[in-house]
Amino acid sequence: MAASHESDSDEFSDNDFIDDVGGFDLVELNADAELEFRELFGDSDDDDDDFAGFMEYFPPDFSMWVWKKDYDGGRDRKEFVSETGPVRVDLPEDRRNSIGFFQLFYSDDVFEQITSATNDNANNKRTRDPDNNKGEWHDVTVEEMKAFYGVLLYMDVVRLDRDEMYWHSGSSYTWLKFPISEVFCRTRFVQIKRYLHFNDDTPVPGDKLFKVRYILDTMRTAFQSHYRLHKQVSVDEAMVPFKGRLSIKQYMKDKPTKFGVKVWVLADSVTGYCWNFDVYAGKYGTEIDRKLGLAGQVVIKLCENIMNKGHVIFTDNFYTSGTLGDYLLQKDTYLCGTARTNRKGYPTVDLPSGKAANRLQRGTIDWRLVGTSLQRCGKTTSLFSTSARHTLPRKAV
């Protein structure tokens, strides 16, 4: 069922994608229904199954929640005691530079895998279809692949309309300080770019990203192993600009980048460091958790490795829900975010909304508490939070 929208175009895009996944279907499963659920969507006993840990969770009956304007000075919560910041790596003196830090993420093993996959792809294509793969070719080396990446990074900083312009020797291009032509001839660069591969071409059922799965998983592991998150983290979406032909390309009319690949991101709220990510490759289908909805499933999947540590997860109103807040609370993890109070399954709170909220004076808010959950509303924004130590509003209704 499509979710109803509040007038907040900055936080979500009013398009078919959001409409399709905005609702939260709260389902009570008895023994027979659970068996049918497992037959349709897989057995959650598998450690790698996204359903693991959800079958025993049942959303609360929000109609039983009694919201009160009764502030008791704060509530206990799990203290966050983890170390934070970059993980110290004892690099040799000659590697304590930009290249050394880059290689923490793109190690020699990564370049060897890319080089091997690229050579296999080139040789396979030239064998299967020699008529469309003419020209001299010799296998690329690891050092050559590193140089290729260096050229790509340079091209991303110094933008020209077409690749061949970087090899132009005319007087109007004297400001190109980096002599790319001394590293690659244009033909060799185009060849490597044509055959560039990260994995073999063996299809993986249900995985549209199997050709880049190796690099995605490797980068995700590296991101997490070299940094420890602060207490405050954020879950949101990002768009990687792309206008070519691609089945997973998204259109978000209210975003600055309207066409591209959507990526769900878990980032450190203090530094903005990307700690976890997941590329959206289409509706999850059988992977959608029927109790939390897609938005809740995204948060759970991104944050599964930081549960039970006292983190506070900040979200916008696409992700925030009472169900998600309740589930995270059981994992000693706390939710704070703007909310769409008129979405399906959201707990009913006796607070001003719609036109009544618009009549509030600027800076005025109203609030209610139930257990460790706080609901605030203001003139334009509603907020839901389970981060237990709430601060009493200075200017309340």
Rank of each mutant, 00 (worst) to 15 (best):
A3S: 14
H5W: 12
S9M: 03
S9A: 05
I18V: 14
D19W: 02
D20K: 09
G23D: 14
F24H: 12
D32Y: 08
R38S: 10
D43I: 07
S44I: 02
M55F: 06
F58Y: 14
D72L: 09
R75N: 08
E83K: 15
V87K: 12
R95H: 12
I99F: 04
F101I: 15
F101K: 14
I114Y: 01
V142W: 04
E144F: 07
V151P: 03
M155F: 04
D156P: 00
D161P: 00
W167E: 09
S169W: 04
S169D: 10
S172C: 09
T174K: 13
L176T: 10
S181L: 01
V183F: 02
V190A: 15
K193A: 12
H197Q: 11
K208E: 03
Y214N: 12
Y214S: 10
L216S: 02
R220C: 04
T221D: 11
F223V: 05
K231T: 05
S234C: 07
V235W: 00
P241M: 07
P241Y: 06
G244Q: 08
G244P: 02
R245C: 05
I248T: 12
Y251W: 09
M252W: 09
P256S: 15
D268G: 11
C274Q: 07
D278T: 09
Y280L: 10
D289M: 06
R290S: 04
L292H: 10
G293K: 03
V298C: 14
I306R: 01
S321E: 08
G322A: 13
Q330R: 14
K331I: 03
T348Q: 08
V349T: 10
P352G: 04
S353E: 04
Q361N: 08
R362C: 05
T364R: 14
W367S: 06
V370W: 14
L374A: 01
G378D: 03
G378K: 07
T380M: 02
S382T: 09
H390R: 13
H390A: 13
P393E: 04
K395V: 10
V397Y: 12
